[in-house]
Every structure is written in C-alpha cells, then in structure tokens.
Write a protein that binds this DNA or RNA. Structure first.
Lengths: 209, 209
DNA sequence: TCCCAAGTTGACCGAGCGGTCAAATTAACT
DNA sequence: AGTTAATTTGACCGCTCGGTCAACTTGGGA
C-alpha cells in the first residue's frame, strides 16, 4: 500500500526529471511517506528505479500482447501494432521520455532497458516476418528502430516543438493528426517493401545510391 | 585556452552522462584545471552547459548549411540532407544522446534546445517545400519529427541494441547498413508523396482509415 | 623595474545527497 | 491482554554538491 504509493510517486518523478535529478526525499514527499520508508521497501534508489522500469515494461508488453497476435495481413497487423503503441504511449509518455533520458545518459540500468526493448522488437519482427530479409538494411531490426524512433520522437520532442507545431503538440487533436502521419509512414514503407517483393531489383524509386 | 579545454571536457562528460550526473569537479578534473577556474570562466554549471549546447547547435547548423542549399530535385536534396545529418552524427553522437537525455528529463535548458531544433526544421521544410501540404498529417513538421526520430533513434538506442543487432551497432559496417536503411525509408516516403501528388485521393495503399 | 589586470588556486560554506539505525508505532494473531 | 512481527519514523552519518572568496601567481605594457 505504502509501497504502491512510493512506486507511483517514483514513476511520476523519474518520468518528469530523469533518474539523477530526482532525490529519494522527493519521492518520499510525493508519496506522503518519510524517506526511511522508501529504503525499507526498496533498499536503494537504484533498486527503486529498476522496479519502476520493470513495471513499465510489463505494462507495455501486456498492452501489445493481445493486439499484435491477432489475425489479418501484415498491413492490418502493423497498423494495429502501431495503434497499440500509440495508445499505450498516451497513458505513459513520461516513460518514453524517461527511457530516452536514461539511454541518453550512459545509464547503469541499461541491461534492464535492453531486455524491455527486446520484448517490443519481437512484436515488430513477428509482423514483418516474411516481408523483409533476415539481414541487411531492410532487416526487421532496422524497421524496429525506425518505428520506435518515429513513434517516440513525438512525445520526446514535444516540449520543444511548441513553436513549430502551433499550439500544444500533446493536445488531443494534435495527437490524432500525428497518428495519421504515423499510419501514412507505415503505409509508405509497407508499399515499398511489397513493390520490392514483387519485382526484385527494380525496387521503389532508388534513383541513385 | 583553459576555457577551451573546459568546454571540451564539459562537452565530453555531459555527452556521456547527462547534465545532472556530471559535477563541476568532474569537468575540472578532466580539463586539468581546478574547480574554481570553471566558475571563473563560466559563472555557473548551467551557463557552462548552455555554452556547450550553443557550440553544438552552431556546429550542427554549419554542417548542414552547405549541403542543404545546393541544387537538385527533392530526391537529391533530401538524400544529401540525411547524409549530412548522418555524417555529423558520427562525429558527435554523444550530443544526440545528450539532447535526447535533456529532452527526456524536463530540462531547464529547453528553450535553447528548441531554438536548435528550429534551425534543423528549416532545412527539412525547405527540402519538402511544394511536395507536402502546409497543414495536416503530411505537413513538413511531421516529417521533420519522423526523420529526426529515425536518424537519432539509432545512436540513442545503440547501447541497448547489442543483442538485437549481433555486434556493435556503432561499428563502421553497421553504420553503413543503417545509412542504407535510412535512404530506403526516405525513398519510400518520397515515392508515396509523389504518388499522392500525381493522383489526389487515390494515395498510396491507404487500404483503411 | 614596477604595476596592474588577468588568471589560478586552496580553503571554505551551507545544503542536499544516499543510506543507516534504534526506537516508537501499528497490526495481527493467540 | 500479551506477544510478536511488520511498519514507520526522527535523528544522524559521511560525503559530495554548486558556489564563494581572499590570496597567490603570472604576464604584458610603461
């Protein structure tokens, strides 16, 4: 109960400021608890952070599980996967930013993050299976990184994009527009991959390179 | 001279660990200088950080300047722009991660970063001008975010991608492969935009909405 | 040679950090 | 009611943090 409140407070604060900039005192204050209780339940600041990370990735995997295993062709499944990702993100973009932040700084919690990323990679790989080669620049792992980049970039950059997007990029209508953009990109990539499949060597408009 | 060495040390350290996790003592030690000298030249840790950020964005803008203003159609110019970005990134991916890290945490230096992003946005907007609508999900700003996401995601996630990419994602041959992937994505998107231009309403494979 | 400004430094400050611990409080069971 | 274990807390620890400052060194111009 107190442990839960501490986890929630830690989640919020780490998400807002990153690991290094949050003190255990901050967490305790936000949780309505004394600092010593945090150590009683979680042992150290680092362990608290890892518990929070685990909770995030478990929720993330759970959110994508149902959505990615369903029926349909690659098109439908990819769009469902991206929608699942976008839905989840709206509830927890603090986490997207947190992970981004920890990856940016040479985090000591990297292995934990790597394990979480692998879960997400599996989903993307499953959807693209058969459509893309195993190796080379069109391998599923590259598209995984690109999709993650496209989807995560928006909430990550949002606080700095107010001038470019006129208004709050995180407002409901702006989010809807962004979602349409992501779907356009996914369509374009699938289209290019299918054309490549159809006529090997005469791929999509690779005029030079 | 000492100021230069301090800036270099600060750049390296902030890039490795992020703002909050670096102390002025660390910077002074790396620069071969006593801590008080750092304050003599830069006044405060925050000012030092902003000087470092400014130096980064100036270099970035300079690197893209020549490359983006050249001749050629949208195809050529976009590819040159992406190559310029990728080239610059190889020299300074610490910075990509640093900015990512500061955006993730609710950085106090956000305005500085926003200004830097606007410089880059201008380049992308110039290249896509005429190809994309002013508003909506295909506006240049959305492609700017997507391109930035695709390009930045790779070095950002790299330290956590060792298992998925077998081997170091930052090795020369892996980078070359990634570059090919980025070009494929750019081609696919340009292709989709041109098809849309050609036959309005019968866009690229938007099988469902 | 003297002078003065620019640069450099060691000593120091108050504050906040992560973490410990023994004592007090509460909850649960007999 | 009495016992015991789980929980909560305030006081405290050693340490590092960002920042200050007076004193010292250095280097160039008159």
């Amino acid at each position: 109960m107190a442990a839960e409140r501490i986890l929630d407070a830690a989640a919020a604060l780490f998400g807002e400021r990153g690991f290094a900039a949050v003190s255990v005192r901050d967490v305790a204050l936000r949780a309505g608890v004394k600092k010593a209780s945090v150590f009683y339940y979680f042992g150290s600041k680092a362990e608290l952070f890892e518990r929070v990370l685990d909770r995030y990735y478990e929720a993330h995997a759970r959110a994508l599980e149902a959505v990615a295993r369903g029926p349909g062709d690659a098109h439908e499944r990819l769009h469902r996967l991206l929608d699942g990702y976008l839905d989840f993100m709206e509830d927890s973009e603090r986490w997207v930013r947190l992970v981004q932040s920890e990856l940016g700084a040479g985090s000591a919690h990297l292995p934990r993050i790597a394990r979480g990323l692998e879960l997400l990679y599996e989903r993307v790989r499953a959807v693209l299976d058969g459509l893309v080669p195993e190796q080379g620049p069109l391998a599923a792992r590259h598209f995984f990184v690109s999709f993650a980049g496209i989807v995560n970039a928006y909430p990550t950059y949002a606080p700095a994009l107010g001038d470019i997007f006129h208004g709050d990029p995180l407002a409901a209508h702006a989010r809807r527009e962004r979602r349409e953009h992501v779907h356009f990109v996914a369509d374009a990539l699938l289209h290019a991959l299918l054309e490549r499949e159809r006529g090997r060597g005469a791929g999509p408009a690779r005029s030079r390179g």
